[in-house]
Design a protein around this nucleic acid. Sequence first.
DNA 1: TTGTAAGCGTTATCAC
DNA 2: GTGATAACGCTTACAA
Lengths: 336, 336
Amino acid sequence: MQITLKDIARMADVAESTVSRALNNKPGVGEDTKLKIIKIAKKHNYRPNQLARGLAANKTNMIAVILSEMDSPGNIEIVKSLEKAAEKNGYQIILCNTNNQTEKEKSYLTLLESNQVDGAIFIGGKLVEGHLLRASFSPENNIVLVNRLAEENFFTSVLTDYSQGVYKAVGHLLDQGFENIALVGGEDYNLIEEEKSAGYKAALIDHGYQINEDLIFSIKADRKSGYNVFLEIIEGDIIPDAFISTSELTTIGLVEAIKMGGYFIPDDFAVVGYGDNILTSVIDPPLTVLSEPVDALADYSFNFLLKLINKKMKDQQIKVLTPELIIRESSISKYN
Amino acid sequence: MQITLKDIARMADVAESTVSRALNNKPGVGEDTKLKIIKIAKKHNYRPNQLARGLAANKTNMIAVILSEMDSPGNIEIVKSLEKAAEKNGYQIILCNTNNQTEKEKSYLTLLESNQVDGAIFIGGKLVEGHLLRASFSPENNIVLVNRLAEENFFTSVLTDYSQGVYKAVGHLLDQGFENIALVGGEDYNLIEEEKSAGYKAALIDHGYQINEDLIFSIKADRKSGYNVFLEIIEGDIIPDAFISTSELTTIGLVEAIKMGGYFIPDDFAVVGYGDNILTSVIDPPLTVLSEPVDALADYSFNFLLKLINKKMKDQQIKVLTPELIIRESSISKYN
DNA sequence: TTGTAAGCGTTATCAC
DNA sequence: GTGATAACGCTTACAA
């Protein structure tokens, strides 16, 4: 058995409440008794039972970070940034990976509903469904969404403005003289894809171009689908001269397919990818990418959550951040 | 306030214990009362407070997976595999990233010591230090180490046989006619590096070659260090014709440096990298790698932990798994 | 089959 | 400044 507060109390010959006060730095303990207690606790390597503590105080100082996708380097970066913020504020993070499975999300949601964590940050994922929505109705459930949309925006959220991002990318490619720009987005289960194509269309129109719906592709957000979509495209009627790929892994697959086909980037096809990470930077040639403001996403979401936990959030907050276009070789026309 | 077991009991007009039994599928409840209780619980979306439950039953059905390094795709694969195993067995995983910081590891260790989790799996990291060792003395602390060594092997562990791996890699490169093989390993803070160089030396000797200590490099296990070490090497007296790089990220940096220097792989330098993951497969040319048996690592470690938790582990167990050499272009001599 | 009550290890509210 | 004691929400003997 582990040593408990009661044991310490006995050894120090004081009441349990005194031990609790002493060990938690609360007022109302004599300096000398306090020191005595701390000494004994240290000597016996006392560790408060956090379950009991959480039960009594209704506070665990832990938050859950619920990841939709662990293979995305961007998400990992957000997590690392969140960890720093949490540490600074005395919170521990527990990470939960759902792999985009609603069932797993539900099961991790019980961490919140059963008071094991003080709040949760959801990173990415499908359009918010019933279970999450329902959970959000309880004011005890402190929830912040990152890069995730709901039909009705009940949630405190931090979002990347994908529309803006794609808009920028299209503008850049047009500037470079590419005129048949294909948009390779994800499957439309989260409204975010609609945003992307909205940005795409707006940019083309604003620059005086026509929209060709056949150049908009919706595929699964993985590497293989990125690869396959290229094979499909070059069999098609209208061959683009540039690609905007809006997910990290499809970008990889797309580039692989282009190179495997014996084509050159950017000479045959320009590419704007997604995510300024080790993957896109390792690839040859260096990829122009839309880059998420990962640190800002983490900072805002953590601070929002803190406010929710401390009941300091007056109105619902939504923060929208703009991705950056990082221009490298893959989108620079040789005719420029 | 959330609804509690007590509330359900009142609504169903039965005792709390009956509710508990009904909801936990324990014997000793009439089928009809059971159904009634379950119905009420469902109707009110009852979620047992896991803190209270854990406190009372001394069991949380959660395990901690403590990651030394989140940027390593291999580790991520192990985690994903562990998640599957956990789910199958009714456990939830909480992920903790230490970034190789002892302080963070200590703080996550309290999850175990304060009974918030039933056990912990440590993946990678430095040579086991005092805090972990001390924790392991308590039989309540169920600990399994993956790819991590301790001076004294008190721990239930699952290990990759790096020595074997490097041995294979050297053999392969010699077969291909490369004779000046450099070993680029990590800093020697975890004994694992010693294993690697042991395998390296043994292979050379067994094949009748001499060992040149100047061809063994110990660097930080990140991309930049991998890059820099190449620049350093080509300035040196003895230029290798092949590299074995034993960490995922240094492999990336090394390859970048070689290509940046205008050299070709494998024509100028053969490369055997580490980790069969998206990074090493994206790189041009396709990399020969030593590949960890990630699924087996996960399976063994989870099953070991389960046995520990259920007190079914008789003697301390150590399982050693051999990495696979996956041969691709980067190590195939053109003179063969 | 069901209820009573003790107990898990804390914190918090009172008295003193 | 300190000590009793209730409370947190659940599980589990034991009794009925």
